[in-house]
């Protein structure tokens, strides 16, 4: 028999059109040839509307997190929207202390989007999922009219299993606790900004986008009294620490000199008048733990490839106003506030 009587998709020069979201043959073909091929696994192969998953081990609880990705540009040094969509959601599950198990993904594609780019991005996403050991078990595709989207948006949802006894929470920080960051801050946001503004540096600033569940597991194992983990994405370190201060009803005092910042990121921030503490990260953890466990936690993080520049950057204090303050390297003090308005649009 002749193979299928179907004209294959032109994955080199073709582009997505409305028929690819229309529920007809074209849509089935796009799903099979682009998404099915890249993500291939037992759940997708069944072709059902949902994935049937095994129950977690006795005593374990489920953790669910979801994240929509709308970054512009879609490709940036160090990554792209595809791997970012995998890492972002895995990290949200991982900072709860859970072991990420499965992902679901929804794609909103703008009419006219080049199929070659779609294939590249989906391949990047599939590679990231495979590397993390977290399969994409179900998904959805929609196509919107030209001008109604910006190329491609990806929303992902992650499911993870939380071991019994693990109770990390943003509300758990206590006065006297140590604040730790797993590495340099501001890399992702500045990589995007540099790309957008055509800033040229000796070596391109690369996004730190990475799946952090391995590093999170190291942190959980190293500090039995670990209070919380967070990934400081949009709004950067400043926003995340302010969230923790609000949730836990405490203050935080940072030591500016201890906060790791890549020299190129620092230079780019200087040039653009930005503060690295406000800039997004996609591959960093913030940990809060009892002061007595801080040294062991920093050492353990440094032993992992994604935590080599981990540092203790501050402490939690009692403060009814829930202010985040910083001892400046210059010798003064200032607040580290939430960002007012947007600093960089569409960063993740």
């Amino acid at each position: 028999m002749k193979k299928a009587y179907i004209r294959p998709l032109d994955l080199r020069h073709g582009s997505v059109d409305l028929s690819h979201g229309g529920g007809g043959r074209a849509m089935a073909q796009l799903i099979a040839d682009v998404f099915g091929r890249a993500f291939d696994n037992e759940w997708l192969r069944r072709g059902d509307d949902g994935a049937v998953l095994p129950a977690p081990a006795p005593g374990e609880r489920l953790v669910v997190a979801t994240d929509a990705h709308v970054v512009s540009p879609l490709f940036f040094p160090g990554g792209d929207i595809g791997c970012l969509a995998v890492h972002g959601t895995i990290n949200d599950v991982a900072v709860m202390g859970a072991r990420p198990l499965y992902l679901a993904a929804a794609f909103i594609i703008e009419e006219g989007f080049p199929l070659a780019d779609l294939v590249r991005l989906v391949a990047s996403m599939a590679a990231a999922a495979r590397e993390a050991g977290v399969p994409v078990v179900t998904g959805d595709t929609k196509v919107v009219e030209k001008g109604k989207g910006d190329g491609l948006f990806i929303a992902t949802t992650g499911v993870g299993a939380l071991p019994a006894g693990c109770e990390l929470s943003g509300a758990a920080a206590r006065p006297g606790d140590a604040v730790i960051v797993s590495g340099t801050v501001g890399d992702h946001g500045m990589a995007i900004m540099a790309q957008r503004e055509n800033l040229a540096f000796d070596a391109a600033i690369r996004s730190d986008t990475a799946a952090l569940h391995g590093l999170a597991a190291v942190a959980v194992a190293a500090a039995p009294g670990l209070r919380l983990l967070r990934d400081p994405t949009r709004g950067g370190l400043a926003a995340t620490l302010n969230e923790i201060a609000q949730q836990s009803a405490v203050g935080i005092v940072l030591d500016e000199a201890a906060i790791p910042v890549d020299p190129q990121v620092a230079a780019a921030c200087e040039f653009l008048g930005l503060d690295p503490l406000n800039i997004a990260n996609e591959g960093k953890l913030i940990a809060v733990c009892p002061a007595a466990e801080a040294e062991a936690l920093v050492a353990a993080l440094r032993g992992h490839p994604l935590g080599r520049r981990a540092a203790r950057i501050g402490e939690v204090i009692a403060d009814a106003h829930r202010f985040v303050q910083m001892k400046t390297a210059f010798g003064g003090r200032r607040m580290v506030d939430w960002l007012a308005g947007e600093q960089l649009p569409r960063i993740c």
Partner: peptide
Amino acid sequence: CAAHYTYGRFRDIPLTAAP
């Protein structure tokens, strides 16, 4: 005003422990 609000407003209020 923005500079004081963003960087300095903690100076206006004495630091107190949460009740």
